[in-house]
Design a protein around this nucleic acid. Sequence first.
DNA 1: GGCAGGGCTTGAGACAGATCAAGGACGCTC
DNA 2: GAGCGTCCTTGATCTGTCTCAAGCCCTGCC
Lengths: 255, 255
Amino acid sequence: MPNIGNLDGVPSVAMSTVISIRDLKTHCMTCSMRELCLPVGLEREAMHQLDQLVSERRRFKRGEPIYSAGEPFAALYAIRLGSCKTTVLAEDGREQVAGYHMPGDLLGLDGIGHDRHGCQSIALEDIEVCVLPFGQLEELSHRFPPLQKNLHRVLSREIIRDHNVMLLLGSMRAEERLAVFLLNLSHRYHDRGYSATEFVLRMTREEIGSYLGLKLETVSRLFSRFQQEGLIQVQGRAIKLLDTAALRQLAGQHG
Amino acid sequence: MPNIGNLDGVPSVAMSTVISIRDLKTHCMTCSMRELCLPVGLEREAMHQLDQLVSERRRFKRGEPIYSAGEPFAALYAIRLGSCKTTVLAEDGREQVAGYHMPGDLLGLDGIGHDRHGCQSIALEDIEVCVLPFGQLEELSHRFPPLQKNLHRVLSREIIRDHNVMLLLGSMRAEERLAVFLLNLSHRYHDRGYSATEFVLRMTREEIGSYLGLKLETVSRLFSRFQQEGLIQVQGRAIKLLDTAALRQLAGQHG
DNA sequence: GGCAGGGCTTGAGACAGATCAAGGACGCTC
DNA sequence: GAGCGTCCTTGATCTGTCTCAAGCCCTGCC
């Protein structure tokens, strides 16, 4: 893929990360994530307005922050492509991964509460996000109640997700945590049209461990054990789920 | 206190838990929690409308659920008096306390996401809540942008709170968790006009443990140790913080 | 006043997961 | 394709927290 940020000999300082969305003819209407993202269920006009609102699209390379803790909050970010992690920092420097995000997810919801980002989101691979200036989004959601409803749902679902992570961290054993994690990824890849049983992890063992409240060695050992037991096949970051029923059993999900 | 639900010989079946708020001359305007609750910063008219919206006030005895998992979501509940715990249930029956709530807190936010409550809130002592029908609240917030803003903030702050609990559960040791817990309670009591250093816990050791991802024996031992070290004074559920600086140190808060 | 039951404390021992340590695999860059 | 750094695996040992167990202290009830 050509470096889209450096067409026409335009100096690349700004262009390498900031691209006018209209120039690229990208619209919510035709975005493959529209069913998972904010526009879900909106009528034509509302979706069009939302399109207009997306002031720009930004790209980040692996390791770059989409936003950082302490920054003034101005916009939400909808992932179009790629994935990232959100981390909370303790005062003493300890870092906790609070979530992994993929296309269709909305980032930065924690910034609304105090007009300042409370955590940071870091790209795990090259990523592209739509920038949704929050003031305008509130205004627009004010004119289109279904959009308001969607925004409320997104916020509430993040709370539900967080509660489930608490359940995981507070009362599950290591093997259960990892099983839940793998099944959750599987489910989300499936929702996005990818294989539910074969995928490539975008994060290190240490990052998985941080999310699950475990050390990287424990994660590594569990992967090995799951493989030995025939539950999964691991090769570095490439994962194949071989026995999802058994994984669900382990995860305490009798479904 | 007389049984307010049974005045005038009215049959008490409904009246024992449902009271028209207007009859009792209770208004957001005069509520002592207005600065911590949804009405914060609203102009007269908006606050009046919010008052009108509060369809009823309900009372629950200790142990009663304000709402339960699986119930259709219809309303948010603002605590006027008393406190409760919110618990998430795993499919296998395990229970995790996801939060403790006190006057001014809004309950039921997790219900918005799927029009159904995903967890339950149980009264820890006799409690009184204002019922805010959510459909009407959305409509009203649509007419009063500052109210919409407040709602967004409340939702976002719950996310921030949850992230901090994840940090606690995922990367802190037992003693740090308990220190954080005590300081958090202290802070919230202070905000509500109570002593920041002397308060009575409303929950059992087991419930504290569930919230902190610890067993009740561990919580008990830590209380004893903190007392021995002169950090606190414990007598059953009565707590006195003696050395908040040391507690903050323990909690990793250098403030 | 005695008794029952829930909640709390404390001790001893077990164990899951952390820590420490060493080496291997993989993917960069030059 | 050599060399380096990051990430990963695996083993040995350690330890914080859990588990099991016993007894105490309230509070409410008969």
